[in-house]
Structures are given as structure tokens and as C-alpha cells.
């Protein structure tokens, strides 16, 4: 049980895929224009991560080492396509917003990374929790970035007006350069917090 909780903590905080491992930068920068899109993308990726970690861990003894990468890719692509069809059918608003980035989850390096680094070497239950942890970590990161961007760009969060009237919305934060600015400042902030913590630890 401790190990399972540890997996969650690792994914969300200590090895957060976006803020610590710097993986999956492409969707991180591209879809975080609104809080809803960021959260949706995070959850879609989480679903794929859980399913692919589960299947790969289950089949880990049957998958020959030499063809493991093609097997991983086939499994991941299958789950992504399933999620894509489900979103298109039941959550079309989110599907329209994320568009091309849903099929691109296939090549999100977090998913292949977890398959190779964890699920292919560990038991099913810890692998599922690893998927949940990494997925939630990714979701947390995307949601945080997109909340900041949406607030700065439109003065709203989840389409709810937050900013006071005198705030002049600056749409640069909704475009690509804004994504880099926000990500850069968040990374710097997180690094500052960590440095403070580790220097305290030493003292």
C-alpha cells in the first residue's frame, strides 16, 4: 500500500513529468490556451497512461525484448484511438477544442517513457498507480499552466470572469510565445522553492 501511494506522490510531485522530467512539452505548450482544454488534455492522457501501463505490465512476460517497442506503440496507439472515438462520440466539445492533439497523444513521450521505464518491469497494480500518478502530475501541470494563461489572456478561469475591470487582457498569453513565458516563470518558481527546501535540509 505504501508503495502505491508512493507511486502517486512520485508522479504528481517528485518526478512530475512536466515540471521535473520536462517530458511531453509539445501538448504542454500547444493546448494550454484555456483551463478547460488543459484539464481535458491532461485527463485524456491520464486515461491512456493508465490503460497502456496496465496492458504492458500484464503482458510484460509475453512481450519479447526485441519487439517490445513496436508492441508498446501498437498498444498505445490502440488506446489513444479508443479514447479519441469515445471523446468524439460523447464529449464533442472537448474533441473539437483539442482536435489534432488527441491522436498526437500516441507520440507523447511520457506514455512510451512510462511503458519502457516502469510498466515493462513492474507488477500490474503498481504500474496502474504509476499511470495514475504520472497522469495526474501531467494534468496538474497542464491545468496550472492553462489557468495562468487563460487568466492573463482573457481575465477568466474556466470561462468565469475573475480579473477586475481595469485589467487589460493581453492575448499574447493565448498564443505560442505566451506559453513559453508562463512555463518559464512557473519552472523558475518551482526551482526557487526546491532550492530553498534543499538548503534548509542541509542546514
Amino acid at each position: 500500500m505504501r508503495e502505491l501511494i508512493n507511486r502517486l506522490k512520485t508522479g504528481i510531485f517528485t518526478e512530475n513529468p512536466t515540471f521535473m522530467q520536462m517530458l511531453g512539452m509539445c501538448p504542454t505548450l500547444a493546448v494550454t490556451t484555456s483551463a478547460q482544454a488543459g484539464l481535458g488534455m491532461g485527463l485524456a492522457t491520464t486515461a491512456v497512461l493508465i490503460l497502456s501501463n496496465f496492458a504492458i505490465s500484464l503482458l510484460r512476460k509475453a512481450i519479447p525484448v526485441k519487439v517490445r517497442i513496436p508492441v508498446f506503440v501498437v498498444l498505445i496507439a490502440t488506446f489513444v484511438t479508443i479514447i479519441e472515438m469515445l471523446l468524439k462520440a460523447y464529449v464533442p466539445a472537448l474533441y473539437n477544442e483539442l482536435g489534432l492533439f488527441i491522436p498526437l497523444i500516441v507520440v507523447n513521450c511520457i506514455i512510451l517513457g512510462r511503458a519502457e521505464a516502469y510498466a515493462s518491469k513492474n507488477k500490474v497494480l503498481p504500474s496502474v498507480f504509476d499511470g495514475i500518478g504520472m497522469g495526474l502530475g501531467f494534468t496538474f501541470a497542464l491545468t496550472l499552466i492553462s489557468i495562468v494563461r487563460e487568466l492573463l489572456a482573457y481575465g477568466t478561469i474556466f470561462d468565469i470572469k475573475i480579473a477586475p475591470k481595469f485589467y487589460e487582457a493581453s492575448t499574447i498569453f493565448a498564443s505560442a510565445p505566451g506559453a513559453y513565458f508562463v512555463l518559464g516563470f512557473l519552472l523558475a518558481g518551482i526551482a526557487a522553492i526546491r532550492n530553498k527546501k534543499s538548503s534548509k535540509g542541509r542546514a
Binding site: 503482458l59 509475453a62 512481450i63 519487439v67 501498437v74 498498444l75
Partner: peptide
């Protein structure tokens, strides 16, 4: 190896 890959692809 090819057979295993083939079976997994079929299931997918």
C-alpha cells in the same frame, strides 16, 4: 517474435 507481435496487433 513476429507471431507474438502479430497476435497483439490482432487483439488491438
Amino acid at each position: 517474435n513476429a507471431l507474438i507481435l502479430c497476435v497483439i496487433t490482432l487483439i488491438a
